[in-house]
Structure formats: C-alpha cells, structure tokens
Nucleic acid binder design. Structure first.
Length: 948
RNA sequence: GCCGGAGUGGCGGAAUUGGCAGACGCGCAGGAUUCAAAAUCCUGUUCUGGCAACAGAGUGUGGGUUCGAUUCCCACCUCCGGCACCA
C-alpha cells in the first residue's frame, strides 16, 4: 500500500489506542497520576442513545473537544475527557410500548452502536469512565441527590460566607433545622404556607398546628415538594403533554385525543429559591455574553411593587369593602398583609410610578376572584370566556397581540392612590403563573394595555410626558410624571421610589422583586426514568427511603403504557402502578405505596459531569479528592438549544450540593461553548413545496426536478427524514475516513455558527490529507519520500513552519478550527512545489496535525521511525522572530481609497511610517499638485493621505 | 408575541474587532502530464465596462458618525435557535 488509505490505518491505530489505553487518565492517588501537571476537564454534552445513532451534528462538538483535549495533552495537561449516554428517555419507551421490547434492551443496543461510532471517529475519550444514566449504580446517586432536595429547605435570609469565601445571601439547609427554628419560635409559617422570616420570637401560626398539619406545612417548605399545578392532561394517552405536543385545537399531536388544561399533583423543585444566586453567580463563569443574557432573561428578575386594589363593587358574592376612606384608614394601622386578603386584588407592577394612570384592571381567567366578583349580567360572557381561555397555552395567549380578547366582569375596584373606581376585566394575556395573576392596566405607558384599552374603549391617561416629537401610542421612555398628584415633575426612578415609600407608609403596597422563573415540574407519568425514592403513607404522609436502601430499582412491568381513559377526570395511573409486588412496601406493619412516577430526563443530565470524575465509586457520587482536583469543568461544549434549560437545571443542582458542602465549586461549568447546528440543503418548487433530494438534479449551478422538470430553489433547513437529506456519518467515514470527516466538520465554518452540510466539499479536505501523505511517503514505492532530506531548512521554509505552529496553536486555544485548517492548507501549498523538503520541518508538522487528524499523524510518526503514540509528544515550540515577516505590504490610500501598495519594514509605525511612505516615488506622484492636510499611518496596515 | 443569534462572490466561509473586503476550501474555466481517462501539478476566477493598463460599483435595505465602516449608532427586512412535559 503506497497511497493514503484511511480504511487501513484508522482501524489499526484505534486498536492500538484501545490496547494501550492511550487516553486513560488516572485520578489523584491512582497509579500513574502525575501531580506536577495542571489539569483540564474538557466535557461534551453526552448524547441520547437513539436508534438512529449519531448524526453529523454530534461529532461537530465532539471533534472540537477532541482536538482541544489532544492539544492540551501535548501542552502538558492532565486531561479529563469522558463520554457517556443520557440513556433514560421517551423514544425507548415509545418503542417499548409499540413492540414490548424492554427499554433497557433497546437502549443497550443503541449504546453499543453509538460506542462503535464514537470509536470510529478516533475520539480520545478515557473509556474507563464511560457511563449511562439508566444503570442502577448511576441513578442510585440521582435518587440520592433528589433526597437531598427533599431533605432541605431554603433559608432565604441566611447571610453566610460560602466555602470559596464569598459573602452570600440564602442557602439550602437541612429540613430538621427548619423544624427546630419553628419550634424555637425563630421562624413561622405564613398565611400562604410559606416560611415567614418576619419578626422573630413569634411562631403563633406554627404553634397552633397539630402534628399532622405541621408535617404537611414542613413538606410544603422542602426544595422538593408536591403541589398542584396546571398542566396539559391527556387522559387518552395517560400522560401530561408539552405545549408543543398540543395542537391549536387543544388536542394531542399524537393520536388527536382531547387535552385538558387542569391542575395535577406534581413533584416540584423549588428552583425559584435560587433565582438570585443563579443570576449573580453568572459573574463567576466565562460564558458567551448572549448565553448569560438568555439565562438572566429567563430568570427574569424585575423590581417594582405589589399594590392592593380594594374591590368597590361586583356580583352578590363580591367581597366589596364599601367606603374607600375607611379602608385606607384601616390599612394605615394594619399595614400591608403578607398575602392578599379577600377584599383586595393584589397586583405586581414594575412601574408603580404610573399608578395614577391605571384606568382598569385585568385578572387572569384562572384567578380565584373572577367567579366571585362577576356581576349577574356579565356572568354568561365571563364563564364562556374563561372556559375558552383555560385550554390555551401561555404561548398562544401572549403571542397574538393584534387580536387581544377580554370580557368585563361588571365589577369595579378603587385605585388606591386616588380612590377612583376602575373596571375589572378578565383577559387571557394576563398569566396566572407570573406575578399575582392580576395586573393594573396603564395604557398610557404599556402598549399591550394601550391596544386593549383602544379595542374596548377604556380611558387612557398619560402619566409620563412624552417628548414633543413623540407620535407613537403608549410611551415607555423617560420623562417627567404628569397627571400624578404628588409625583408630578419627577423622573421615573425618583417617582418609583417616592410612590413605594407612600404605599408602604399607608399599608397599601410595598416594594417587591419578582421573577419570571417558575418552579420546575419534576414528575413524569412514565416508565423509563428514575423512580422517586419516596413512600406515601396511608394518611398521605411522605417518607424518604433511607440512603443505604438506594437505589430504588425500576421494576419489571408487563406493559409500558400508562393506563388510559376517556374520562377527563381520570387521574394519572403511570406504568409503575402495574408493578403490583413492587409498589407497596411494609414498614412496621403499615402498608406504604411507592411513588409511581419517574423523574424527567433532565435529572440524569443534571450531575453526570460529577460522576465522570469517579464513575465506579460505590460509596459516594464521586470521591472528594477527585472532585477537588478536577472541578470545575474547564470547557463545556454543546448545542445552543441547551442554553437555558439544561444549563440552568444543572447549575441549580450543583448549588444545592455546594450548600451542603458536597462539592467545592459554586459553579460547575467555567467555560461554555455553544456549537452551531449542522443544517442541510433542501429544495422547493415554485409553490414552496418540498422536493425530496432523490428527485433533484443539478445543472450549471441551478437545480431542477429530475427528468427536465421545473427549476427549484435551494434553501437551508434542519436535516429531516421527510426531506431525505439526513447525512449518516458512517457513510462519509467509509468513503473518506474519520480524519477527513473531522477536518471537514472543523473546516465548515466557525464552531458556533449554524451551517449547511455539503458532501460535495468533503473531497477538498480528503485531498489535503492525500497531499500531506505524499509529502512523507513515495506513492510508487510506499517508502519514505526521497524528496525528504536531512538538509537544514532555508529561512522561508522555517518561517512558514513557525507561522503555522503559531497560527494553529493560537486558533486551537480560541476554538477557531476553520482558520487553523486553512493554515494547514497554506503550509501544504507552500511545501508541495518544493524539490526537496527538510525532514526536521516535516517532523514538526506531524505534531501540528496530530490533534486534528490523529490516525494519519500516528501512521506518519511511526513511519518516520518514532516509537509510541504521537499524542504523548510535546506540542512544538515556535520562534516568535521566525513567525512573522520583516517587511510588509502597506496600502497607501488617498482620501480613503487605496491607490497603491508599497513594501516597508514591518516595525515602522507612526511618524517613521508616514515619512517612509511619503518618500516613496509612487506616493509622491499621487500627491503631486495637492495640499496634504492630514496623514494617518497605521503600523503594518496602511497610510491614508488626506489631500486635495 | 417575547428572549438570543446571523445576513459578505455561483457555494461554505476569512478579515488582526474601526484600517488593503473576499484568506483557505468547493465549484467553474484554461493549461501540463496521459494513447485516453482517473489521479496529480500549474494558472485564472466578486460584479460591470475594456484586448489591456485601468475605471466604476460592492459586505440584507435605508439613513448617520468618521480621514476611513463588513465592523459603531438609528430604523426596517429576511433567516436560524429557545419559550419550561422532546432533551
């Protein structure tokens, strides 16, 4: 074999790496661990083991981290670079429902296929650390972490110095400390059941509860708690559906069954407790600013005020307060209640300064007061409206602003700042899940309110003076307050401050912080997930399974489908309810029922980066030594689609473990890179109808329907089965090899950008590898090329080499692999025409390509006569002086237009550059007869002459 | 609708972050080699006009700031990702 043959060399070196465990990375304390080296933890987002195997999108990120890992090892780092499988999930369960094959079997088969593919790419994972989230020895610790959530409450006012030495407010504490504090009278439970951090030495509410009620009260304060929340319940499928699985007609995407929006008892994780820290700790990590911004916006912190609007009149049941002045007087003494009493509508507003412009109120359709305040005349309309609104998703309700809908309840409330009666409406653009589920509407300063007010002919009062040239509708900009009594003339910020002081002093409101973030619904009515380690007693009490009884293993069932029904009120009966033996547990003669739900797929992926540190550990999720050495993750690469949810959930779990001293870093992921999506070309006819790839032919750069059909438009879309434009990496590797595949994906464009796959471009990089091969190996004989000589390299060759080492190294450091490979092309373009090529230069070049194309690098390295793996060799050092040129071409501009180019020393700058340039005859000719007014000289770039 | 990102040759993209627009690759055209082809090597390739030297235009659209704008500012258009039970 003389030519480059990836099919021969790639399996050979993959077998070598496997046999020698080339990429095994020992932990501190293990044999072979080198404590003198710095560390890098380089992590990929692990894949779901789908039956389709890896698609071309997976290896994009995996190639990027692999190159970085290989480069880091050559730079002298201990590198932790592991891989595993996010193995619980819906597709295996769906397949099981259809075929009866146990999801564990399907999953294991898919994992085996993915493992084969991952090895075929030549990724340098430490395979001894491979894991899958669906194995009992993994999910044992997922359950263990859940129990830490169950065993804890959030002490929101606790001021403490965290183990990294930072002053922090709020932390998770063991639930027993809450009970102790309640017993001691240091804390109380408030009217809504939440922890009352108010005046100490008063726990009257807690003391008034009996033992059962206390237990329930404590359960509601846990970080993992059970609550009723509205969900899309589909009794015919027996599960809750995601909004995207529900059609516009309120039916299930799958099967077209009716879906009901109804409250359901669910496990909830109190992620909202960490809202503040999840925002502020973003300062600790080096993430792309847009991703941080997305997380901040998702958490959605806003400051404003809560204000009570007393009900003035309404239906027979309306808790009207009667006389406004009396109410005000009463409030002045009683103060602002912790939760709203019946007679008021409490709103949250970010613009309390606009209170005088609140001309009506809106309740969410689900608001408890709607039914009570509605007058008999409006009852029919309101009921019909509420009925139609509850089945809409939040997205639908807020999406279409043009066609705002709503109904008047017939009731009125008093505006607390001026006592004016304002109408109360019901509208679905107000969401129960945000704020208090009720708003004060200020059409003068809010466009949604403006649209609504205009449509229903409600009054509009401006309370911020717009500029003279303002011709819009609602005005949200800065300006002095008008029509606002005591606030008139104040700018927004001081007006906010003043009105909050007034509201607090009169007991009508208070300053408040609000978050968009909602607690995390953690229940799934499914089979293929982690069982909850919780027992339910006969009287509804919850008991945690002891740590030493974990894992609670997933039992066998004969049918994976939840129990289905056509009755709207039928309650969920998940598949685990069929595990008759398993589901009941006897404890001291009392029969307990296991929790029959499972955790969402997120659970396993929330902490897998910790298990990689020490995956076989049977006594802890990972050893403290391993955690101490390896954390945090230095580089985390994955798709931007995880920018919010996965990354927020994982940070939340990490902070819980941090609060309990189980991990030592406040944040898990120090650096984050979001790879783009690999898209595909697709073709549409003149009507915009998709034409599958098999029916398209190209002619002179245009695309036509096969058989002389009409011309088609090329578009860029997601790869999809329907368009038949999915590319299978196995096919590409079979044709061109893994090294070429890796190079192609890295050369496609910036890692972060989405870009279309184009198989037509793969031969380009394949050709590069062939050309590299021929620099070393004689095509005819298969021996080392006779053009490779022992003679020392000339200066130009050395400059090219050193420039290449520098450019490629710097590009790897900043993950700019597309330009790094461009430099490899330039090096090869330079070497190819040479008659003889210095061996010393070519030896160094093998090291430069080793991170990108490990197989060909190993082969050439061994053919050059070296023993052992090239991945163990140090990255070459470049000479700064040789890596740049002495003279550079300077562009000479006249009035900003390039007129000529001259060669000048690279280090000339400022005045010197200006003088050198002006001395050039070509430049003299340019300015002849003109007056030079100004000269701008930029070192190594250009000289711009302003002359006329 | 809300949040985030992106628009540069026939195509993927580059541009030291305010300093020569189009590196590098694909494709295409021409040439060398070959009986021929593949492979390989060399040359050219933003557009318009011109044999050419050269001139003009040009980074989604329209404005602005600047000696100088793909880069900064304002407005708009288009596309992509996310919107909490797909993960």
């Amino acid at each position: 074999m003389a030519g480059y043959d990836p099919a021969a060399i790639e399996p050979k070196w993959q077998a070598y790496w496997e046999e020698h465990k080339t990429y095994r990375q020992p932990n501190p304390g293990d044999e072979g661990f080198d404590a003198s080296k710095p560390k890098r933890y380089i992590l990929d987002m692990f894949p779901y083991p789908s039956g389709a195997g890896l698609h071309v999108g997976h290896p994009l990120g995996y190639c990027a981290t692999d190159i970085y890992a290989r480069y880091s090892r050559m730079q002298g780092y201990n590198v932790l670079h592991p891989m595993g499988y996010d193995a619980f999930g819906l597709p295996a369960e769906q397949y099981a429902i259809e075929t009866g094959v146990h999801p564990a079997i399907t999953t294991e088969k898919n994992i085996a296929n993915m493992r084969r593919q991952l090895k075929m790419f030549g990724f340098s994972y430490d395979w001894d650390r491979e894991l899958a989230t669906c194995t009992p020895d993994y999910y044992k610790w997922t359950q263990w972490i859940f129990l830490r959530l169950f065993d804890s409450w959030f002490d929101a006012t606790c001021e403490w110095t965290d183990p990294t030495g930072r002053a922090t407010v709020g932390r998770a504490r063991h639930i027993s400390e809450l009970i102790e504090a309640l017993d001691q009278g240091e804390l109380d439970i408030d009217e809504s059941g939440a922890i009352d951090h108010g005046p100490q030495g008063d726990s009257t509410r807690w003391s008034s509860l009996d033992a059962d009620a206390r237990k329930r009260a404590v359960d509601q304060c846990r970080l993992a708690f059970v609550d009723e929340v509205p969900v899309n319940w589909c009794p015919a499928l027996g599960t809750v559906l995601a909004n995207e699985e529900v059609t516009n007609e309120g039916r299930s995407d799958r099967g077209n069954h009716p879906v009901f929006r109804r409250p359901l008892r669910q496990w909830m994780l109190r992620i909202t407790a960490y809202a503040e820290r999840l925002i502020s700790d973003l300062e600790l990590v080096d993430w792309p600013e847009p991703i941080k911004l997305m997380q901040r916006n998702w958490i959605g912190r806003s400051t404003g005020a809560e204000v009570d609007f007393p009900i003035a009149s309404g239906g027979a049941d309306a808790p009207a307060i009667g006389d406004f002045a009396q109410w005000q007087a009463a409030r002045a003494t009683s103060g602002f209640g912790k939760s709203a009493d019946d007679s008021v509508i409490r709103v949250y507003t970010t613009r309390p300064d606009t209170l005088f412009g609140a001309t009506y109120m809106v309740l969410a359709p689900e608001h408890a007061l709607v039914e009570r305040i509605t007058t008999p005349e409006q009852k029919g309309a309101v009921e019909a409206y509420v009925k139609s609104a509850v089945n809409k998703s939040d997205l639908d309700r807020t999406a279409d602003t043009k066609t705002k809908s709503g109904v008047f309840t017939g009731a009125y409330a008093y505006n607390p700042v001026n006592g004016k009666q304002i109408p109360i409406w019901v509208a679905d653009y107000v969401l129960m899940g945000y704020g208090t589920g009720a708003i004060m509407a200020v059409p003068g300063q809010d466009q949604r309110d403006w649209d609504f007010a205009t449509k229903f002919e409600l009054p509009i009062i401006r309370t911020v003076e717009p500029p003279d040239d303002f011709d819009g509708e609602a005005y949200i900009g800065e300006g002095p307050a008008i029509n606002s009594g005591m606030l008139d003339g104040l700018e927004i910020a001081p007006a906010k401050q003043k009105i909050i002081e007034y509201l607090e002093s009169t007991g009508q409101g208070r300053g408040a912080v609000n978050y968009k973030l909602r607690d995390w619904i953690f229940t799934r009515q499914r089979y293929w997930g982690e069982p909850f380690p919780i027992l339910h007693g006969p009287d509804g009490e919850m008991v945690a399974i002891a740590d030493d009884e974990l894992p609670v293993e997933l039992p066998e069932v004969e049918e994976y489908k939840p129990t289905i029904s056509h009755d709207e009120d039928h309650l969920p009966e998940p598949p685990l309810s069929r595990a008759t033996e398993w589901k009941t547990v006897d404890r001291d003669g009392v029969e307990y029922l296991r929790d029959l739900n499972t955790m969402p797929q997120w659970a396993g992926s929330c902490w897998y980066y910790l298990r990689f540190l020490d995956p076989q550990n049977a006594s802890r999720f990972c050893s403290r030594e391993a955690e101490d050495y390896w954390m945090p993750v230095d580089t985390y690469v994955g798709g931007a689609e995880h920018a919010v949810l996965h990354l927020l959930y994982a940070r939340f779990w990490h902070k819980l473990l941090f609060d309990f001293g189980e991990v030592k870093t406040a944040e898990p992921f120090q650096n984050l890179i979001n790879q783009g999506m690999i898209q595909a070309f697709a073709y549409e006819d003149s009507r915009g109808v998709n034409v599958i790839l098999d029916d398209v032919e190209e002619c002179d750069g245009a695309y036509y329907r096969k058989g002389g059909g009409e011309q088609l438009t090329q578009i860029v879309t997601k790869m999809s089965k329907a368009r038949r434009n999915v590319v299978n990496p196995d096919d590409i590797i079979e044709q061109f090899g893994a090294d070429a595949f890796r190079c192609y994906e890295m050369f496609m464009g910036p890692l972060e950008a989405s870009k279309p796959w184009n198989t037509r471009d793969v031969p380009g990089v394949y050709k590069l590898l062939n050309r590299i091969w021929r620099l070393y190996v004689d095509q005819d004989t298969g021996a080392l090329s006779p053009q490779m000589t022992a003679e020392p390299a000339d200066e130009q060759t050395l400059r090219t080499l050193h420039k290449t080492i520098k450019k490629v190294g710097e590009d790897i450091d900043s993950f700019k692999y597309n330009t790094a490979i461009g430099q490899l092309f330039e090096f090869v373009n330079f070497m190819t025409p040479l008659e003889t090529r210095p061996r010393e230069v070519l030896e160094k070049f093998v090291l430069v390509i080793a991170p990108f194309t490990p197989h060909i690098a190993e082969e050439l390295w061994s053919r050059l006569g070296f023993e052992g793996s090239v991945s163990k060799v140090s990255w070459p050092v470049y000479d700064e002086a040789l890596a740049k040129d002495d003279t550079v071409e300077i562009a000479v501009q006249l009035m900003g237009k390039v007129k000529t180019r001259i060669q000048l020393p690279a280090d000339a700058d400022g005045k010197a550059l200006e003088e050198l340039a002006l001395a050039e005859p070509a430049v003299q000719a340019l300015i002849e007869g003109k007056t030079v007014r100004k000269v701008i000289a930029i070192k190594g770039r250009l000289v711009n002459i302003v002359a006329n």
